[in-house]
Each structure stands twice: as structure tokens, then as C-alpha cells.
Write a protein that binds this DNA or RNA. Sequence first.
DNA 1: CTAGATGTTAAGGT
DNA 2: CACCTTAACATCTA
Length: 263
Amino acid sequence: MPELPDVEIFRGYFNATSLHQKTTGIEVRNAKVLKEISARKLRSALVGHSFQSTRRHGKYLFAETDGTNWLVLHFGMTGYLKYFKNLDEDEKHTRVLFSFANGFHLAYVCQRLLGEVNVIESPDDFIKERSMGADAFDVSYDRFKQIISGSTAAIKSTLMNQEILAGIGNIYGDEILFQSKIHPKTKSNTLRDKTIQCMYRNMHKVWRTAVDKQADPDRFPRTYLLPNRAEGAKCPRCKQKIQTLKVIGRTAYFCPKCQNKNS
DNA sequence: CTAGATGTTAAGGT
DNA sequence: CACCTTAACATCTA
């Protein structure tokens, strides 16, 4: 489930489980997640070292070692972390298994292999090389407004473009637009200042709620779209039928009554 | 059996 | 250039 809030939760999980202990081994079960490095390089960069701290930018998690390298984790559509002692708790789709000196393991699980495990020397350089936009949790209002009003694309497309704003994916994009009563196909540069302010506030509200509720839609407030994000479901605000349409190839769920293009 | 699913990228079209 | 659509990656589920 990895969008910004999910990755922020993984970061907390990593901090609570995997810092300050020596990595004793790394088993690469499926090298497809390594994308641009070898298993040998992953091991030589991390084995014998310990993780000291973490950072997040958009959907990427970075873990700093006591050496010169950082571990990079991206979770694709189906990735997550699991920390355990006994291998009978291992997961079917563990792609990389980190082992620590205390006998515990950290599994990088990624069913669809769309995620990435990498090693880098500088998160800031990596963020630049990958052309990532401002983190959607950290961005200032002035920058946010500049970003939105500088794009002629559909607002949902702008929000989800990682080179413009990093961290928003399909489901939280829908939630932010639902909370802000904006139609997903509204042209970004036609939004009024007041609407952009509203969207900025709602973006933060959604992040806080999602992290607070451990990104579990069942625990979200009833006024949220996410628990009702299904074809034929009813809008939690006006009871109209939720509709779908395609924006940049992804399904957008929205309420045709609450979210109209002229608001 | 088929279509679609939280992500990203490449290729091609308007 | 800015934007959109489609396809692809591997696997599971409705």
C-alpha cells in the first residue's frame, strides 16, 4: 500500500526494529528488485555495518549506515517490511532478507517486484538524479501554490506526478481531491487561490489522519472517501453514487455531485 | 477466464 | 514543449 503515509509508517517500523545493530548477512531471493546494483554490491555496502538513521522523500525510504552508504527502499505497489526472529514467520514474497547480529531478520517483501532496493552515497544527490519534486509532506504553501498554478495538466495528474510533488499516489490523490471538493480533471492552473489553500490544508489533514490510523482505511473517519472507494459505493457526504474515470491511466474515484469542475 | 490493483517507465500520439 | 494514452513488469483476487 505504499504511498507517502505508508512509507512514513515503514520508516517508523524500520526505526523501531532495525537501527543500531550489525547486519550479518543479506540474502537476495529475487534480484529483479535490485534494478541497478548487484547482490554483491548490496552485501559489500551493508554487511558488517549497522543502520543509524532514516529519511523519507516521497515514496522512498533511505537508511543511513555507519559507513559511507545509504540503503534505499522503494515499495512499488505491493511492498512492505516485516521484522521477525524465526524463519517460520517469513513471507512468501520476501525478495531480500537482512539478518542482524541479534538473530532477527528484516524482510523486504514485494509481491509484484515493482519496488526497488538500492545502495547510494547521498540521498540528496539521488533525489536530484531521479528528478523528484518537493516532498508532499514538507512542501511550503508558497511552493505548492506555484507548482499547482504552473501546471496545465488535470489536477489529479499534477498531484500524482512525482517529478512535481513526491509522495502522492492514486488513492490519496483521490482522497485529497474529495476532501477539497475538486473534480480530478480540473485543469490545475484554473484553480483559484482559495481552492489551492483548501487543497493544501486537506493534504496535511489526510497525511495526519493516514499516519495516525496506520494507513488502515477501516479506521479512517466516516467522512473519508477511502473506505468507500469502490464502484457503486455512496458518497459519505451526499449519498450520491461514487463514479470513476481514468486520469493518466489510473482509475479516479470521485463524487460527481460534491466534486464538480466549477467550484 | 478476464480485468484490475496502492507504481514507474518507455514509446508513441495530439 | 506539455500533455495524454497504452503497454509492460509479476502476482493475486474479484
